[in-house]
Write a protein that binds this DNA or RNA. Structure first.
Lengths: 164, 164
DNA sequence: TGATTGCAGACAATAAATATCCATAATAGT
DNA sequence: ACTATTATGGATATTTATTGTCTGCAATCA
């Protein structure tokens, strides 16, 4: 089974930060990396994935950087997950049911998908459905109500200093 | 994010095969490996995980091998997944929210878990709930009704030959 | 023009999954 | 008692995936 790598966590945090950014402002990959304490060049790779998926908009040059490509309530967590993880399934069926003594049996006898893969994929659909129902706007809302004003203030001030 | 690897698929298939085994019979790691066309020594590692989790019962010696440790309707797919994957979460929160400009802020300001991790973990719970609701008996039932009699017969004959 | 930034590809380092090997112990049959 | 079979656990090797860096290039702004 495949587990989520760090790039996904970073991308999600970046997306939420960008969702809270004032209209017209941008944050560079370097700033986002510093904010989260992660390697800048590598984070840039994750941000590129988000840009390719048209989740964020990028601009080169001084005053360049990233902002959301659409409204925060139009971007689900699943969108970000699929962008970073490439939309690959958690469980990959290798059809091992057809090997061994069964490998001489014609393919037509295996028309239906493997019952085990079915179960894993149904569970994966439930997972995706949960991720699809939550938007960046939802998370931003929760952050505003749940995070201490102290932390909120420090981050806001730091972001303001970055975007001048 | 982490994806499900081969050991899990192999373990699930082995568990379902063992669920369909006649009472009192066993299959060795070597037989199960041959049936699924996978490396015997490595499959043995996966079977050991199932044995340690008390999902299967093992016996050494000639006529030894594996059988289910309890009734097939008492073993969920989640049981097998957790046994093989060690119960580790798909998404691991590294608390990157506390880094950068926030690292000087006291831990008490971060009492609640990260909102992003919350979303990922809720989705993971939905995934686990789906896996928990399906038992090996359920899969065995579906296999009997969905798989062609041809395949069913070949496998049955092959297993009979192994268990003598 | 020079500084800043994103982009894409190549490359290197590290971690994880995959796979094998060995020594040991238990069991069944002879 | 002896042999063949099988599971166990640890050590180790191999392969693959992830993580991370570097370079050259294009776009933007002052």
């Amino acid at each position: 089974m495949k587990r989520h790598g760090n790039q996904l966590e970073w991308a999600l945090h970046c997306a939420v930060v960008l969702a809270g950014l004032d209209a017209g402002k941008r944050l560079s990959a370097g700033s986002l990396a510093e904010l989260h304490g992660v390697p800048p060049k590598y984070l840039a790779k994750a941000l590129q994935l988000l840009a390719n998926a048209e989740i964020v908009n990028s601009a080169p040059g001084p005053k360049g950087g990233y902002c959301l490509a659409k409204s925060a309530d139009e971007i689900s967590v699943l969108d970000v997950v699929d962008a970073v993880e490439g939309g690959e399934p958690l469980f990959r069926c290798q059809e091992i049911r057809r090997r061994g003594p069964c490998q001489s049996i014609g393919a037509k006898h295996f028309a239906k998908s493997c019952q085990i893969a079915d179960v894993m994929w149904r569970a994966e659909e439930a997972w995706r459905a949960e991720l699809a129902r939550v938007t960046l706007a939802d998370i931003g809302q929760r952050v505003l109500t749940e995070v201490s004003v102290k932390v909120l203030g420090v981050v806001q001030d730091w972001v303001d200093a970055q975007t001048t």
